[in-house]
Write a protein that binds this DNA or RNA. Structure first.
Length: 582
RNA sequence: GUGCCCGUAGCUCAGUUGGAUAGAGCACCAGAUUCCUAAUCUGGGGGCCGUUGGUUCGAAUCCAAUCGGGCACACCA
């Protein structure tokens, strides 16, 4: 469906032909040859760099070579004209009928237009959110969640099979702190005065309900028991409560995971011991001492002999500890076992989407995946930079410690799921994002999500009206009379629509869904421009009561716009609106 | 100090993985419009792509330095 591929193949055939006739030497590689839209549309519809790439190995002047290739391409179907320009670009202009036919394809494929089999049905394990179950997720986490979720949909659209997975870090010191914090709230619920929450505990009010719930269920049962007795039950109870809260927030965002994997299960099943044993057998585990980090002031630094993984052999800056001094596994050891588990479940390709505050652990875990899978597994980490929340240009301060973080639920309640998702996914993941409440809620053309939704709604409004004017329209094949589309604006819009599959592919390959926001914006903009022209010039309106065949063609075009915007928004998990009124 | 990310118009940002004369929105300037299909429209000015080298037919894009900003850097997660 990406017609650039089609023409690239045609160009390669022409080149093979030239090799056979002796005009080109044998043994050339064509890999670097591209077929793209020219930057300047007046140059044509397609441009190829073939002559520039081949001139050196073929020892020919690029422009002469371009002429040679151009002659071959002139006879291709759908080609109106071929010209050589600049240092040796070959520009191809296509016949209007080609573009009209693209619209037929769009209407036939509907929401599947742009889908492809690029991924060849390959399985990818996509791990995201994986926020610690020690409290509610805040609005900044939401970016990671949305970006990953949109990426998942996008990769599915191009033919990958995605498993959406959440890793629950319910073991280790933080989970223990959660249990202790909950225990305090439990005693508080029983009527004790607990005073200020100690340093390092979780002070948030959200644990009050949890303590209350235990008190209600069990009464004073745990009150006088030693810590060993209550710690594990409290941990489990609190983790479950937090995960319920987190899943509820994810649900509000429209996010559902296929699989939740718990760190504690990896401990219990012996998966960690087995994984480390495996590394040890490869000679990658040793007892050693790490150097003190330079130029950071650490109190109580003491060199210690520890069980270490040789991650430096795989590109990390330092070897990493697998065991704490109390003999328990580090988080890292658990993470190695976890990724090995994914691999053993059949996922050689894994993507983790994390917040940028996790940069420090990327190298060690990608190193560990290489090691434990013996080079068979591939982990890519996508990092999302911080989100700055603003209200009308005023930054909002967030601090988890001070309890002033913004829960996801609050933001969605305020701006709506669709606007939230679109905003979070609209910026390149590695760039910081400003999330301004005023701008996201703005009901004007300055707000891209509104602008795009408006275009979609307008399309439907026009189609509704078209049906009133020509009741038989819906039953008519839209493919007829498309040659009536000759206006430059119409063709421009058609070009944008036909370019959609390519945009989807580029975004998927780069794993950068945000690119599609701009593609959708461009389509919406061109549509709005045309709508506005109809205001000044009645001939340019979409519905012309006295010209049914032109109206039919234009309605088909509008339907194409609605189809692509609708399916594009669906990738973002945004519901396309058919009217803007409530 | 080290690692990763960012640096593009006054502001907010795109930039088709190395292509032709670097784009959009806001703001600014100049016109049009009060009619209608639904929230105005059209045009214009504005740039040393942080800086300096390198790679090649060709660099905002790749490499090396350098400056500025963000994040991270012990057994936490």
């Amino acid at each position: 469906m990406n017609f650039f591929h089609h023409f690239r193949n045609e160009i390669l055939k022409a080149l093979e032909n030239l090799v056979q006739t002796g005009d080109l030497p044998a043994g050339l590689t064509f890999e670097a040859i591209t077929t793209e839209p020219p930057r300047d549309p007046t140059h044509g519809d397609l441009a190829t760099n073939a002559a520039l790439i081949l001139s050196k190995p073929a020892q020919k002047n690029p422009r002469e070579l371009a002429q040679l290739i151009a002659e071959k391409l002139k006879s291709l179907p759908s080609v109106e004209d071929v010209s050589v320009a600049g240092p040796g670009f070959i520009n191809i202009k296509l016949l209007p009928s080609f573009w009209h036919h693209q619209l037929v394809t769009i209407l036939e494929k509907g929401e599947h237009y742009g889908s492809s089999n690029l991924g060849l049905g390959e399985k990818i394990n996509l791990e995201y959110v994986s926020a610690n179950p020690t409290g509610p997720i805040h609005a900044g986490h939401g970016r990671v969640a949305v970006v990953a979720d949109v990426l998942a949909t996008l990769l599915e659209k191009v033919g990958y099979i995605i498993l959406r997975e959440y890793y629950v870090n319910d073991a280790g010191g933080q989970a223990e702190k959660l249990a202790k914090s909950t225990y305090l709230r439990y005693r508080e619920a029983l009527g004790e005065t607990i005073g200020p929450i100690p340093e390092g505990y979780y002070p948030g009010d959200y644990l009050k309900d949890v303590g209350q719930a235990i008190a209600q269920r069990d009464g004073a049962k745990w009150k006088d028991l030693p810590e060993e007795e209550w710690c594990e039950p409290f941990r489990a109870f609190a983790v479950t409560a937090m995960m319920t809260n987190i899943r509820e927030a994810l649900g509000l965002m429209g996010i559902t995971h296929d699989v939740f994997t718990c760190e504690t299960d990896l401990h219990r099943s012996g998966a960690i011991d087995a994984a480390i044993q495996d590394l040890r057998a490869q000679g990658l585990v040793y007892e050693g001492t790490l150097e003190a980090p330079r130029d950071t002031e650490i109190e109580d630094w003491e060199p210690r002999v520890q069980m270490l993984f040789r991650s430096t052999q795989f590109g990390d800056d330092s070897d990493r500890a697998l065991q704490k001094s109390n003999g328990t596994w580090t988080y890292f050891a658990g993470d190695i076992a976890y990724h090995y588990d994914k691999f053993k479940r059949g996922y050689t390709q894994m993507i983790n989407v994390w917040g940028a505050d996790h940069v420090g652990i990327v190298k060690r875990i990608t190193a560990a995946v290489k090691a434990i899978t013996k080079g068979q597994g591939q982990l890519d980490v996508v990092l999302c930079q911080m989100v700055k929340f603003m209200d009308g240009g005023e930054p909002l301060k967030m601090s988890k410690r001070a309890g002033t973080f913004i829960p996801v639920q609050d933001v969605i309640e305020k701006v709506g799921r669709d606007a939230y998702r679109f905003m979070m996914a609209s910026r390149k993941n590695e760039a910081q994002l400003d999330f301004d409440f005023q701008k996201v809620m703005d009901q004007s053309k300055d707000n891209p999500i509104f602008y795009i939704q408006y275009a979609h709604a307008r399309c439907h409004s026009v189609m509704r009206m078209g049906q009133e004017t020509f009741p038989e329209w819906e039953k008519t094949s839209p493919a007829s009379s498309l040659e009536a589309l000759t206006d430059p604006d119409e063709l421009r819009l058609l070009h944008l629509l036909a370019g959609w599959p390519r945009q989807v592919e580029i975004a998927a390959l780069a794993r950068e869904p945000h690119r599609l926001c701009y593609a959708l914006y461009d389509i919406a903009q061109q549509f709005h421009i045309m709508w506005n022209k109809g205001k000044d010039n009645a001939q340019l309106r979409f519905i012309l009561p006295h010209n049914p065949s032109l109206t039919r063609a234009r309605l088909a075009l509008i339907q194409g716009v609605a189809t692509i915007i609708g399916s594009g928004l669906a990738i973002f998990g945004v519901t396309p609106l058919k009217e803007m009124r409530e």
